[in-house]
Computed example of a mutant assay.
Amino acid sequence: MTASDKAFTGSIPQIYDELLVPLIFTPYAHDLAGRIAKAKPGQVLETAAGTGVVTRALHAALPPEVRMTATDLNEPMLMQARTHLAGADRISFQQADALALPFADASFDVVACQFGVMFFPDRVKGYAEARRVLRPGGRFVFNVWDRIEDNEFAHVVHETLQQIFSDNPPQFFTRAPHGYFDPVKIRADLGDAGFSDIIIETLPHRSRAASAQEPAIAYCQGTPMRGEIEARGTPDLATVTQAAANAIRQRFGDGPVEGQIQGLVISAR
Rank of each mutant, 00 (worst) to 15 (best):
D150W: 15
G194N: 08
R206H: 13
R187D: 10
H158W: 08
K185F: 15
F165N: 06
Y180N: 05
N168E: 13
P169W: 04
S207H: 13
V156D: 03
F195L: 01
S166Q: 05
V184I: 05
G194C: 05
D150Q: 15
E159V: 07
A188K: 10
F165D: 02
Q162R: 10
D189W: 04
R208A: 10
P169S: 04
E201W: 13
I164M: 06
K185W: 14
D167F: 14
A193H: 09
I198D: 07
I200W: 01
D167N: 11
D192S: 14
T174F: 12
S166M: 03
P177H: 09
D192V: 08
G194K: 02
D192N: 15
P177I: 11
A176V: 07
P169T: 07
L190E: 00
D189A: 00
F153L: 00
R208N: 13
P177V: 11
Q171K: 13
R206N: 07
L203Q: 15
H155N: 12
P170G: 04
Q162W: 09
Y180H: 08
K185G: 13
Y180D: 10
F181N: 00
R208K: 13
Y180A: 06
L161P: 02
G191L: 07
F153T: 01
F195S: 01
R206W: 14
Q163A: 14
S196I: 11
D150N: 09
A193Q: 10
A188Y: 14
I198C: 01
G194V: 05
G191C: 06
I164T: 09
F173S: 15
I186D: 01
G179Y: 14
I198L: 00
F195Y: 06
N168P: 08
D197C: 01
E152R: 03
E201D: 12
D167L: 11
G191M: 07
T174G: 10
P169A: 05
I199A: 15
S207F: 11
D182V: 12
D189V: 01
D189H: 02
G179L: 11
F172M: 04
L161H: 01
A188L: 07
I200K: 07
S207E: 15
P177S: 09
Q162K: 13
A154T: 04
A188H: 12
L203S: 13
G191W: 06
I200L: 03
F153D: 00
Q171E: 13
E201K: 11
G191P: 07
H205T: 11
E152C: 02
Q163V: 15
E201L: 09
I198R: 03
L203E: 15
I199F: 15
P204I: 01
D197L: 04
T174L: 06
Y180L: 12
P170D: 02
A188C: 09
Q162E: 12
E152Y: 11
T174N: 12
E152N: 02
I198W: 03
T160I: 03
S207I: 05
L161V: 08
R206S: 09
N168T: 14
D192G: 14
R206M: 06
D197H: 08
V157C: 05
N151K: 06
R208L: 10
A176Y: 09
N168Y: 09
S196L: 02
Q171F: 12
S207A: 08
A176N: 06
F195A: 02
A154M: 10
I198P: 02
H178Q: 10
H158R: 01
R206V: 01
F173P: 12
